[in-house]
Every structure is written in structure tokens, then in C-alpha cells.
Design a protein around this nucleic acid. Structure first.
Length: 271
DNA sequence: ATGGTGGAAGGTCCA
């Protein structure tokens, strides 16, 4: 390596299911400013593109913006201080919904931002179409990353699955609850294997420790009862992992006024 | 076993 011509850039990339970007625009702006975020990936923006609060993000330095939204549901966005190129999306399950966007960062790294279907209540492929959609979506992701084996990728988003025992408050009580059933967790871990991904947060927090990114709105005492799940994820290609300097789940936003039920993940990476 | 809350649209669906 020739040190003299290598310019190492430390980048701070975050992902957050914001559950309406218009309602919580001030939360996202505050988070970007306080945490010095360079690349912000959002899910559940719930906003058609013509109403996306683009100018407000411009004002905090997010010069490059790609977003795909629709009325009421879904919606993803990638905002950045650094140049983004080549925005793309895939029409997963031919639903024509807004659950995915990818961009190229710095001509090197491809970032994929996903909002995987939640899957409804019953974990039954035959009787619950939402669950069938979720599993089909995951199978298509698996096929895509089997064919797309390039290095230098980042995958973030609300994957709506808590894959490990300590990614939920009670493995025993949630084993038949959508988000933690074995068909979901096994399919997700297959994608990690096939894509040669590294689950960044689990590299920084050992498997014997509980780790959550979501607490239901249906529990007023969410912090005391702490019945959380790790539904949000930050993966990098194996070759990139040595460049990852930190990974943090930012729990404090869950205590902000009228919060999202999800909290952001922040990762520092040298590129 | 049930219901608990929140967002957006619009009098209900989704999470």
C-alpha cells in the first residue's frame, strides 16, 4: 500500500425507520445535526415524492437525495453530504411498492436500503398473504445477492426480523410470533451467508447480550418492561468490515417527544 | 386469550 496517495475518508452512515418523515422531520434533522451524519437512510417515510421535505434536508447539508415514496405506506430515502450516483430500485414481488432503493457512494460502495414487509399476524404461508409476501420477498433478496456477488456493498434497513435469541426479549415467548419464527430467521441468516455479509451490530455486541432497535407503541412502559426486538440491521460486505470503526444503536431517540417506534443505527466506516 | 398505541387517509388499513 502506498500511504502517500491513500486518502482515507471517515464516513458516518445511519439507518432509521422514521414512521412518517413529514411528522418527524424535526427528529431526523436533530439527529443528523447532533450526530454529524454523512449518509442517512430512512424507511417508512410514508410520503409521495412530491411532498418529501427535500429543502429541509438541504439546509442541514444533505445535498444529494434519492427517495421513493407513496401515500400512507412504505417509502425509502437515502440522503447524503457526499455525492451519490446511479440510483436504482428493484420491483420486489412485482408489487410496484416503495420498499427498496440503492445508490453508489464515492464510486466504490453500493448502498441498499430495504423496508422488508412486516408479515401480518399469523406466521402461516397458506392462510396469511402478508406472511407469504414477506417470505417471497426474502427469497427474491436471496436470489438477487446470489447473482450479485460484487464486493463493497452495504445493506441497511428495517428487515422486520430479529434473527438471534438475544435479538428479542424472550426467545421462548416469541418463537411463534412473526419476526422471530424459524422460517424467517433461517431465511434471513441464509441471505447473510449467501451474500457474504457481516452483521455489523453483532460484531460489536456479543451474542449473549440483548440488543434491540424497536419497542412497540403498545407498551407505555417500554423502557421499564424493555420488551424490544432487533428488527433493524446494518450489514457490510466481508471485505469492508475491517474498515468499520464502530456500530451503535441510538436508543435515546425512543424517549424523544412523539417518537418513532424504531431507533437509528450509526456506523462509522473508513472508505 | 386479549388488547394495548400510533400514522395516514378518510370513516380503515397497516404496523
Amino acid at each position: 500500500m502506498s500511504q502517500n496517495c491513500l486518502k482515507v475518508l471517515s464516513m458516518r452512515i445511519a439507518t432509521w425507520n422514521i414512521n412518517s418523515v413529514r411528522l418527524r422531520i424535526n427528529h431526523v434533522l436533530r439527529f443528523i445535526k447532533e450526530q454529524n451524519i454523512d449518509v442517512m437512510c430512512l424507511q417508512e417515510t410514508k410520503t409521495p415524492d412530491e411532498f418529501f421535505p427535500s429543502e429541509e434536508f438541504q439546509k442541514v447539508g444533505m445535498k444529494y437525495q434519492y427517495y421513493r415514496g407513496e401515500n400512507s405506506y412504505n417509502g425509502v430515502a437515502i440522503l447524503s453530504r457526499l455525492k451519490l450516483k446511479n440510483p436504482k430500485h428493484i420491483d420486489w414481488c412485482r408489487k410496484n411498492d416503495t420498499r427498496h432503493i440503492s445508490v453508489k457512494l464515492n464510486d466504490i460502495i453500493e448502498i441498499h436500503n430495504f423496508y422488508v414487509p412486516a408479515g401480518g399476524d399469523e406466521p402461516n404461508l397458506l392462510t396469511n398473504q402478508k406472511f407469504e409476501h414477506k417470505i417471497s420477498f426474502l427469497k427474491e433478496m436471496s436470489d438477487f445477492f446470489l447473482k450479485n456477488t460484487k464486493k463493497n456493498k452495504i445493506l441497511v434497513g428495517d428487515l422486520n426480523i430479529a434473527p438471534f435469541e438475544n435479538d428479542v426479549w424472550s426467545h421462548k415467548q416469541l418463537i411463534n410470533v412473526v419476526s422471530h419464527t424459524s422460517i424467517e430467521t433461517e431465511t434471513l441468516l441464509d441471505i447473510v451467508q449467501i451474500g457474504e455479509w457481516v452483521d455489523v451490530m453483532r460484531e460489536f455486541v456479543p451474542h449473549n447480550e440483548k440488543l434491540y432497535s424497536w419497542w412497540s407503541y403498545r407498551n407505555r412502559n417500554w423502557e421499564i418492561s424493555n420488551r424490544g426486538r432487533r428488527l433493524d440491521h446494518f450489514w457490510v460486505s466481508k471485505n469492508l468490515f475491517p474498515r468499520v470503526k464502530s456500530g451503535v444503536i441510538c436508543k435515546e431517540t425512543r424517549s424523544w417527544e412523539r417518537p418513532s417506534d424504531h431507533v437509528p443505527i450509526i456506523v462509522d466506516i473508513e472508505i
